[in-house]
Design a protein around this nucleic acid. Sequence first.
DNA 1: CAACATCCTGAAAACGATTCCAGACTGGCC
DNA 2: GGCCAGTCTGGAATCGTTTTCAGGATGTTG
Lengths: 327, 327
Amino acid sequence: MAATIKDVARLAGVSQSSVCRALAKPEQVRPETRERVERAARDLGYYPNRAARGLITGRTANIGVVLPDLANPFFPSVVKAIQTQARLFDYAVFLGDTDEDPAVETSLIRALAKQVDGFLLCSPRASDDELRACDRELQTPIVVLNRRVSPFPAVTADSADGMRQAVGHLHALGHRRIAYVAGPRTSWSNRDRLRGLRSATSSYDMDLIEAGNVAPTVDGGAAVADLVAASPATAVIAYNDLVALGLLNRFRDREIAVPGRISVVGFDDILLAGLVTPALTTVAIAKEQIGRAGVELLLDLLGDRSPVNKRTPTQLIVRASTGPVPQ
Amino acid sequence: MAATIKDVARLAGVSQSSVCRALAKPEQVRPETRERVERAARDLGYYPNRAARGLITGRTANIGVVLPDLANPFFPSVVKAIQTQARLFDYAVFLGDTDEDPAVETSLIRALAKQVDGFLLCSPRASDDELRACDRELQTPIVVLNRRVSPFPAVTADSADGMRQAVGHLHALGHRRIAYVAGPRTSWSNRDRLRGLRSATSSYDMDLIEAGNVAPTVDGGAAVADLVAASPATAVIAYNDLVALGLLNRFRDREIAVPGRISVVGFDDILLAGLVTPALTTVAIAKEQIGRAGVELLLDLLGDRSPVNKRTPTQLIVRASTGPVPQ
DNA sequence: CAACATCCTGAAAACGATTCCAGACTGGCC
DNA sequence: GGCCAGTCTGGAATCGTTTTCAGGATGTTG
């Protein structure tokens, strides 16, 4: 078995308390003692068992990250940033993938609750009430990413501004009729993006044609491509990049020129977006910043500082899938 | 604070021991008692604190997953499969991203060791000796994915067979001179793939030109593309899909026709591979199967069943980036 | 040398669960 | 009624840590 604090105490010839102090608050022990303890700990390869510490201090130094689908390339970026930032503060990360199932989500949260100091819920699928119920029952701090659910602190992307940039870009290219391929009806991001888009198109006095809702995947996009092509729209904005890629694929198969006949704009700026042909014009979301800010908010919450909701900037990345309106 | 076993005991009017038994081994308590305990637990939303259980039983019901870079699309697929399979057996998953740094890797392993029952190390970057040192010191079961390090049980892909399929395919198309863009020199997969490739080309009596080593990223591939184009090779096999995509990108920019002038083959079959133009011919790895098998091996290890190394099949996916040799 | 503060240490309690052990109760049988 | 086996329960010990508390050693000051 791995070494425990007792082993270190015995080897160093001091009590457990001293070992604990020597390692956790070195200034409280005599240098000589500290030296002995440190050597013993090193020799035995001793690392404290954080689970035991958690029982006493109520601080496990773990955070739980729950997300709908790790296969969606958006999430790994966020998780990576979370895990990197968490490590800076010596927190470890529990990961739960819910497979888009709200029931799995809440049960995962409940099961993990005792092992973590707080949760980062990425784009949670459960209803506001369900999330609040979890919170009331567990009393575990929760920060939400990519969604607003009062009363939780949240980090969201400024979709409205992203949509404004995208619509402005299309307007400048001469487009006046835009289609939107909507993501899951239950998705907060989808509603948020749609809201931003509506406001942008109306302020530019452009027509908005809404298609969908589709699954937020390549197949989802492909499924609705024909409908979009048959519409009077000369440009289409997709709920996210995967959907946009589905459109692109299907357009290519049907020999509908992009951007000659129709322009396509995605959302998220996943790695893929820059690599397909034509390269996808898309609204980039600051994924790393979202992850980092989420950790910061959670640490604020844990440190009794009051966290303030954060909105991260978005940035239109113009690539090759958008062009002047036909004729 | 969330409810503890004491709260449940008080509410149900029984002792802690009975609560524990009622929930963990229901057959050992009177139905009436069980009923009362269950109701109390439900009313309080009680979930046992697994950390505390872990102290007693030595079983935390957590597994640790350590990987070099979540931003590489290969890993999220594996992690997702791991987490799904783990949940089936009521295990939760700790995730550690090492950012390709062997030092971070070993320190992460040590820090997490006490909180998990075992590790799944995906493509670990530390040396064999370092890994063995961790093992000796921690006595925590370890299963390795995508690499062989004795004495640990391992799950690996059958790269040799994949390479044989790829080379066979290229040979049938008339190619006789193949380039290989090597990944990181320290990567076991890279060495394994290269070994398989050498054996395949020599059995087909073809020339092999080795380029690299490059970082296993799009940029890595792009960096070496010109070199490959200048070589006499008519086809190139890349260490992985990201590298292949880098090649593809750079070839497109330089107007080198794929597969007209040169054929490109990737490795892994990440989602991206099917979406770029031309769609990438690649050797698919059974990512989900690797994740699942990894969990199974680890559970074998934990259950005192002796695990047997597993080799998962590979499958060449022919798409549009390979074609007949020029002329 | 007494009085006192300061520094350092170890014993013991605590955290939340599980498990061992012993005892209380029940029922069956003579 | 007396004995025994079997079933069920609670008390107490346990895991590896942290923290509180009290006391011992040391040094300073009058």
